[in-house]
Design a protein around this nucleic acid. Structure first.
Length: 480
DNA sequence: TGAAATGTTGGGGCG
DNA sequence: ACGCCCCAACATTTC
C-alpha cells in the first residue's frame, strides 16, 4: 500500500488538475488536503491576516464545493490550519504517506514557502505541476532570455508558441475515482471546512456571496454561457458596465475552479488562436494578460510594493485618510466612481472598465498612492489576484510594464457618458441618483441648485479639472 | 485601454 | 460676388 498527499491551493478543481492525476497514478491511496496557513510565519498571501476577507469568503464556498465533488468520487477534503510544513509532516506521519504532490503557485511568498517545504520534505520527493497558467513565467522570453515588458510582442510570441503545439495544452480529465477514501474520512479535519474559520464573524458575507455561484461546476457553466451568448460581441460589450458582456470568470480562475487551459480549449474548439473571431481573440488576449501579469510578478517580485519604473519612487503622493475612506466607501460625489466602489463592496467584484476609472481617480485626481488602492482591492475583491492586481494598479499609475502614460488622466464624467450612456449602471449602485436624467446622472453637480439640494448625495470631493492639472504638475516633477 | 488644447477646413450667414 | 466672421467637425499636438 502506498499513500500520496495532494495539497490543494489555487487549484480547487478535479478536472485539469495535474497534481491530482499524478497522485492517483502513483499511489493506491490519495489524501486530498487543504491548509489554511494564513497568519502563520512564512505563509503565502502578503499580510499577517492572510488573503483578503472577500477572497476568504469565496474560498470557503469553493472548498465546500470541492469537498462535495471529492465526496462523489469516494473521498473527502481534509482541512487543517497551521504552518504548512508542520501540517504536512504530521499528516504524513498519521497516514504513512510517502509521496507529496501539488500544483505550483507563483506569488513571492508562496514560492518562498514552497521552496522551503520542498527541501525539508525531500524524502517524499515532492512533485509539482503547472495548473495555474498556460505558460510558466519562464517559458515565454525574448530572444535574449529576458522577459517581455510590452504586452503586444509578448502576446504575439505566446500565441505563436501556443499554436505551435496546441496538444500540449489540452486539459486533463478529472479522475473517475479517487482511491483511499476510507483513510481520508478517518482523519482529523475530514470535511471540516467550517473549522477553518474562513467566514468573518459579521455576516456581510451572505449577501455578498449571494451574487455568485461558486465552484468548479458553476465555473464551467459560467464559461459556457459566456461563450454561447456574449463572446461574439465581447469586443464592444466588455466596456459597458451596465450590461453583462464580460465573462465574470476572474474569481473562478483566481481560485482555480477552472484553468486557463480549459478556458482556451473550450473557446477555441480545435481552431488555432489565429483563426478566432474578433470577440474571441480579445477574450483570449485577456487570458494572456493574466499570464503576462504572472510573468512580471515572477521576474520582478518587488513590484508588489515598489513601482517597476524607479522614477516613481520619488513621486509626490499625498496622504489623506479622509479622501481614501470616501473613495473606499463610494462617497466621493463622482457618480461612476461611487457606483464602482459600491459594486465592489456589495459583490466583491467590479467591472473592468470601472476598475480603470476608479483607479485613475484615486491615483490621479486624489493623488493617493496606487499601493493604497491595491491593498483595498486585495481585501475586497473575490478575484483578488496578486499578479493581476499589482499589474493593473501599476498600469493605471503609469509606473508598470506597458503602462498607460501618467498624463493619460481619465475624466470620469466623459468615461461615464461614453460607456454608461443611459446611466443605468450608476443608478443601479447609487440609488440616490435614481431620478436624475441621463443629462446629469454623471455630473449631478451641474443640476440647478434646487434639484441638487433635493438629492441626498455628496458634493464632489475634488474639482476634476483642477486635480487633473495638479496630477500633471506632480508628474512633471519626476519626469526624467 | 484619454482628454484638452490647438490647428485646419468648409459651409453658411451677413453686410 | 466677395470678404469676413462664426462655428461645427475633424485632425493634430500636447500633457
Amino acid at each position: 500500500m502506498s499513500t500520496a498527499i495532494v495539497w490543494f491551493r489555487q487549484d480547487l478543481r478535479l478536472a485539469d488538475n495535474p497534481a491530482l492525476v499524478a497522485a492517483c497514478a502513483a499511489c493506491d491511496h490519495v489524501v486530498a488536503l487543504f491548509i489554511d496557513d494564513s497568519g502563520e510565519a512564512g505563509a503565502a498571501g502578503r499580510t499577517a491576516a492572510g488573503i483578503g476577507a472577500a477572497s476568504r469568503v469565496w474560498l470557503h464556498h469553493s472548498l465546500v464545493s470541492l469537498d462535495a465533488s471529492l465526496d462523489a468520487l469516494g473521498t473527502t477534503l481534509v482541512c487543517r490550519r497551521g504552518a504548512a510544513l508542520e501540517v504536512l509532516e504530521s499528516l504524513a506521519e498519521e497516514t504513512g504517506a510517502t509521496r507529496l504532490f501539488w500544483n505550483r503557485c507563483h506569488d513571492p511568498d508562496a514560492i518562498r514557502r514552497d521552496k522551503a517545504i520542498k527541501s525539508a520534505l525531500e524524502a517524499f520527493s515532492p512533485a509539482t505541476s503547472n495548473a495555474l497558467l498556460v505558460f510558466e513565467p519562464w517559458e515565454v522570453l525574448k530572444k535574449d532570455g529576458t522577459p517581455y515588458k510590452v504586452y503586444t510582442p509578448y502576446w504575439r510570441a505566446a500565441a505563436a508558441m501556443y499554436d505551435e503545439a496546441p496538444e500540449r495544452h489540452r486539459p486533463l480529465d478529472a479522475p473517475a475515482t479517487i482511491p483511499g477514501g476510507e483513510l481520508a474520512r478517518s482523519l482529523e479535519g475530514a470535511g471540516d471546512i467550517d473549522d477553518l474559520g474562513l467566514l468573518p464573524s459579521l455576516d456581510w458575507h451572505a449577501p455578498l456571496i449571494a451574487h455568485w455561484a461558486v465552484g468548479e461546476q458553476a465555473a464551467g457553466e459560467r464559461l459556457d454561457a459566456f461563450l454561447e451568448r456574449d463572446v461574439e460581441a465581447y469586443d464592444e460589450a466588455r466596456n459597458l458596465p451596465g450590461e453583462s458582456g464580460t465573462s465574470r470568470l476572474s474569481p473562478h480562475l483566481h481560485h482555480g475552479e477552472i484553468s486557463p487551459r480549459q478556458v482556451l480549449a473550450r473557446c477555441m474548439e480545435g481552431r488555432s488562436l489565429g483563426e478566432l473571431s474578433d470577440g474571441e481573440t480579445t477574450f483570449a488576449k485577456e487570458i494572456f494578460w493574466r499570464e503576462f501579469s504572472y510573468m512580471m510578478l515572477y521576474h520582478f517580485p518587488d513590484t508588489i510594493e515598489e513601482p517597476l519604473d524607479r522614477r516613481f519612487r520619488d513621486f509626490p503622493w499625498r496622504e489623506d485618510e479622509t479622501a481614501l475612506a470616501a473613495w473606499q466607501r463610494g462617497r466621493t460625489g463622482v457618480p461612476i466612481v461611487d457606483a464602482g466602489m459600491r459594486e465592489l463592496y456589495a459583490t466583491g467584484w467590479m467591472h473592468n472598465r470601472v476598475r480603470m476609472i476608479v483607479a485613475s481617480f484615486l491615483v490621479k485626481n486624489l493623488l493617493l498612492p496606487w499601493q493604497a488602492g491595491e491593498a483595498w482591492f486585495r481585501d475586497t475583491l473575490v478575484d483578488a489576484d496578486l499578479a493581476s492586481n499589482t499589474q493593473g494598479w501599476q498600469w493605471t499609475a503609469g509606473c508598470g510594464a506597458d503602462a498607460a502614460p501618467f498624463f493619460r488622466v481619465f475624466n470620469p464624467v466623459l468615461q461615464g457618458e461614453k460607456f454608461d450612456r443611459a446611466g443605468d449602471y450608476v443608478r443601479r449602485w447609487v440609488p440616490e441618483l435614481g431620478d436624475v436624467g441621463r443629462k446629469h446622472v454623471h455630473q449631478p453637480w451641474a443640476l440647478d441648485a434646487d434639484a441638487r439640494d433635493a438629492l441626498d448625495y455628496p458634493e464632489p470631493l475634488v474639482d476634476l479639472k483642477a486635480t487633473r492639472a495638479r496630477a500633471l504638475e506632480a508628474f512633471a516633477t519626476i519626469k526624467r
